[in-house]
Design a protein around this nucleic acid. Structure first.
Length: 145
DNA sequence: GCCAACGTTGGC
DNA sequence: GCCAACGTTGGC
């Protein structure tokens, strides 16, 4: 069963628009220096989907991306401790889903985005995935096709 | 800009 | 191995 994920980034540093500009080449999700986040990336499989969340500025889920390369050593890390996956943009959220909306919605109260807000790469349950896509007006069938 | 939450570090 | 001190994240 495929897993779902959520990646956070400050748009000032690396935005959804910047990822989209990379097209199918994608981009390494490097710079993560947290063990839990690293372990999450290590568990990702090719083609698994994740939300792109803009932290600080925007504070909303703006798009869906996919894992385009399995975890590999972080090119910006010399210690050999950290790794990253590559990701590429798949689809815009037709209506970006703000954190405030996620918080108001009981079904999503347990999302790591709310419950563990500092974790930068998070797992998302299938139920959460479906609900956020629905709220964002994203057609899941279109996504698969 | 403030501060709560959390992770890491280092002295003991 | 405990825990105080410190640094960082990220919402507000």
């Amino acid at each position: 069963m495929p897993a779902y994920w959520l990646f956070k980034s400050e748009p000032d540093v690396f935005s959804w628009e910047m990822l989209k500009a990379r097209g199918r080449r994608g981009e390494p999700w490097d710079g993560v220096r947290n063990y839990q986040a690293r372990n999450n990336m290590h568990a990702m499989k090719l083609g698994e989907l994740g939300f792109f969340y803009h932290s600080n500025d925007g504070k909303e889920i703006v798009g869906v991306m996919e894992v385009s390369a399995l975890a590999h050593p972080d090119p910006k890390d010399d210690s050999g401790t950290w790794e990253c996956v590559d990701v590429r943009a798949v689809a815009d959220m037709p209506r970006p889903v703000p954190l405030s909306t996620v918080k108001e919605y009981a079904k999503l109260a347990k999302m790591a985005l709310v419950a563990n807000s500092r974790l930068s790469v998070q797992p998302v349950t299938p139920t959460e995935w479906k609900e956020v896509c629905r709220m964002g007006g994203l057609d899941l069938k279109k996504l698969k096709g």
